[in-house]
Simulated scan of single mutants.
Amino acid sequence: MGPERLKDAAETLLRMHTPGDPVILPTVWDAWSARLAVDAGFGALTVGSHPVADSVGRPDNEGMSFEELLARVTQITAAVDVPVSVDIESGYAELPARLIDGLLSAGAVGLNIEDTVHSEGGRLRSAGEHAELVDALRAAAAAAGVHVVINARTDLFLRADGDEADRVDRAIARLRHAAEAGADVLYPVGFHDPDTLQRLTSELPLPVNAIADPAKADPSSYGPLGVARISFGPLWQAALAERATEILGRWT
């Protein structure tokens, strides 16, 4: 994909984020799942680290290399003609310029970046450190001439980090730092009750990404809470695996 098409795809992806009318980005892991989602009518996709790792027999949390991930992303972008974002976990200990250049070379125009550092024992980046990484990624994207859509994720809820009483406050503060540093979307990953999710969308300054179980969640429930983006994490793959197990079980 040439520079102009990358720029157009990135701008298209960014425009899709509308609070109250969320864009649904099915989380895919290979060309087959990507085509399945696009044929179903979805106009953009996200590539999930967990389902990709499962598809090649590796553990999540950077159990595969950045180069291996890019090889899979290249297959996906060659198979579909929609904007593609990629979960790059905590950055695979790569320099921001390498991350941006690699993604653009693979045809991707968006990324998720989380604050758990898998290459350093799973420690949590400080809010300032995570913001610095977002800033460096934004600068690298600007240097490349493409407004890569940066989805800044915090794992405070997944990790059950610190006191639950102020966890939402800490997540909001952390994601505000990321917003100031140049993020486009904010991702307080986790399953939140409606009041918490509405508080997050109302107090955060940018579009908010929510995770949903595609087989169980009510698609209409997220818009009224102010959500701008929905992704599935590993849950679509898990739902397909459950159904496949039922089918295959008839023959064993």
Score class of each variant (00 low, 15 high):
residue 162 G to H: 01
residue 127 A to M: 08
residue 114 E to P: 06
residue 31 A to K: 08
residue 211 I to D: 10
residue 133 L to C: 04
residue 156 L to M: 08
residue 26 P to E: 04
residue 240 L to C: 14
residue 191 F to A: 13
residue 209 N to S: 11
residue 136 A to M: 03
residue 205 P to V: 00
residue 134 V to N: 05
residue 195 D to A: 15
residue 161 D to R: 13
residue 175 L to F: 10
residue 224 P to S: 05
residue 172 I to N: 03
residue 28 V to K: 05
residue 17 H to R: 00
residue 217 A to L: 02
residue 171 A to Y: 06
residue 52 V to Q: 05
residue 82 V to E: 07
residue 89 E to D: 13
residue 252 T to N: 13
residue 192 H to S: 03
residue 136 A to H: 08
residue 16 M to P: 02
residue 124 L to I: 14
residue 171 A to C: 11
residue 145 G to L: 09
residue 76 I to D: 10
residue 235 L to S: 12
residue 188 P to F: 05
residue 74 T to P: 00
residue 119 S to P: 00
residue 187 Y to C: 01
residue 147 H to R: 15
residue 164 E to P: 05
residue 119 S to V: 09
residue 136 A to D: 10
residue 122 G to D: 09
residue 177 H to T: 04
residue 131 A to F: 07
residue 66 F to I: 07
residue 91 G to L: 06
residue 127 A to V: 06
residue 8 D to T: 14
residue 172 I to W: 10
residue 223 G to V: 01
residue 201 T to S: 06
residue 68 E to P: 03
residue 159 R to C: 00
residue 233 G to M: 07
residue 51 P to I: 07
residue 19 P to N: 03
residue 228 A to C: 02
residue 99 L to T: 07
residue 82 V to P: 06
residue 27 T to R: 11
residue 165 A to V: 12
residue 30 D to E: 10
residue 36 L to N: 03
residue 223 G to N: 08
residue 133 L to F: 05
residue 60 D to E: 08
residue 38 V to G: 02
residue 18 T to K: 14
residue 25 L to Q: 10
residue 213 D to Y: 10
residue 71 A to Q: 14
residue 55 S to G: 03
residue 124 L to Y: 07
residue 98 R to K: 14
residue 26 P to W: 07
residue 5 R to P: 04
residue 93 A to S: 12
residue 197 L to H: 05
residue 97 A to F: 02
residue 168 V to C: 10
residue 81 D to E: 12
residue 43 G to K: 12
residue 242 E to P: 00
residue 132 E to A: 15
residue 155 D to Y: 01
residue 72 R to Q: 14
residue 132 E to R: 15
residue 64 M to L: 15
